[in-house]
């Protein structure tokens, strides 16, 4: 177990390093002028040259990559923003909690809606309940989260006035963003739960449980669910990736001061340190979450525990 953890944590290093190099390279070869963005369209040529010199933007690619990796990894210094000179690390730290809250509440909503919906669909296979939940989940899965977010705002905030349109001054502000990013995941998880549940219901050990005289509901919850969850966990892991992506857009739509909106502003303004800092942190969060998902396998499936031990 301990060995597995250490091994997995060591694996984070090449993953985060690889992501950083990739993003740095992409940013390097993307058109756009950070100096113009930072100084404004009417800045003089001298001040632009001075800006590029100061931030090392005139250096060759490999030199810049080297100095970026050196400052980021051994020193954990993500640099300062080109635009306002604020420390990227400080900004990210103060924004981190918003992003974590939104993505994790989002994934909890996905799980809380998706798994029961999948179970209901599977246990009522080929009835109206099954068809209804599958049609709804197909609809939700194929809908982009930003569009759903806008619909929610229109209806619940503007038409009914129940919830704030933007901002997270109180907990009510979290409802719409979390629901809008969670709903797509809920749909995918529901479909995966349904199919793996149907698979499990046909297994011999379910017949054994029935032959013991166990009731149908106890069989579903006590015998089927845990076995059906194993492939669902994989789906949840995949949804985490999608969710981190949709949280970027949702933070912008709902003006939430999280890492996502910071990253989007950074990209728009060609603010390289901000973009790189955000991506490094997001890839770290994502990798750690996937590690947790993998550990969940061991909780659900005893066969996996042996793999951990060896």
């Amino acid at each position: 177990m301990f060995k597995f953890l250490v091994k997995r944590i060591l694996w984070l290093i090449p993953v985060v390093l690889g992501v950083s190099v990739l993003i740095f390279t992409i940013m390097c070869f993307t058109p756009g002028d950070p100096a113009r963005n930072a100084l404004g369209a009417d800045a003089s040529q001298e001040s632009i040259d001075e800006f590029n010199e100061k931030h090392g933007l005139n250096d060759p690619y490999l030199v810049r990559l080297g100095s970026f990796l050196k400052s980021t990894f051994p020193e954990f210094d993500l640099g300062t923003s080109y635009i306002n000179g604020s420390s990227v690390s400080e900004q990210i730290l103060s924004r981190l909690s918003y992003t974590l809250r939104i993505t994790y509440i989002g994934i909890l909503i996905s799980i809380a809606l998706g798994i029961p919906a999948g179970i209901i669909a599977a246990t009522n296979q080929n009835t109206w309940k099954d068809s209804l939940s599958m049609v709804v989940s197909l609809f939700c899965a194929s809908m982009p989260s930003f569009w759903f977010a806008l619909l929610l705002v229109m209806f619940f905030a503007l038409r009914l006035g129940w919830l704030p349109t933007v901002g997270v001054k109180s907990w009510t502000g979290y409802i719409l963003p979390c629901v809008s990013i969670g709903i797509g995941g809920a749909a995918s998880i529901a479909r995966q739960t349904r199919s793996s549940m149907l698979e499990v219901i046909r297994q011999d050990y379910v017949t054994t449980a029935k032959a013991k005289g166990q009731s149908r509901s106890r069989i579903i919850w006590g015998h089927c669910l845990r076995n059906a969850l194993i492939p669902v966990l994989t789906a949840i892991g995949g949804q985490m990736a999608v969710l981190v992506g949709s949280s970027l857009v949702c933070e912008t739509i709902f003006s939430i001061p999280g890492i996502g909106s910071y990253l989007v502003t950074g990209v728009n303004q060609r603010d390289y340190p901000v973009v790189l800092g955000c991506v490094v942190i997001l890839s770290l969060i994502f990798s750690l979450t996937m590690l947790c998902v993998d550990l969940m396998y061991a909780v659900v499936d005893p066969r996996f525990r042996n793999i951990l031990k060896s």
Binding site: D204, Y205, T207, T208, N227, V300, P302, R303
Partner: peptide, 16 residues
């Protein structure tokens, strides 16, 4: 009560 044909699949793998 009933004894099943295939012992490999007749027990629930996630319950002791």
């Amino acid at each position: 009560s009933m004894i099943f044909q295939d012992p490999m699949t007749a027990l629930n793998p996630t319950i002791v």
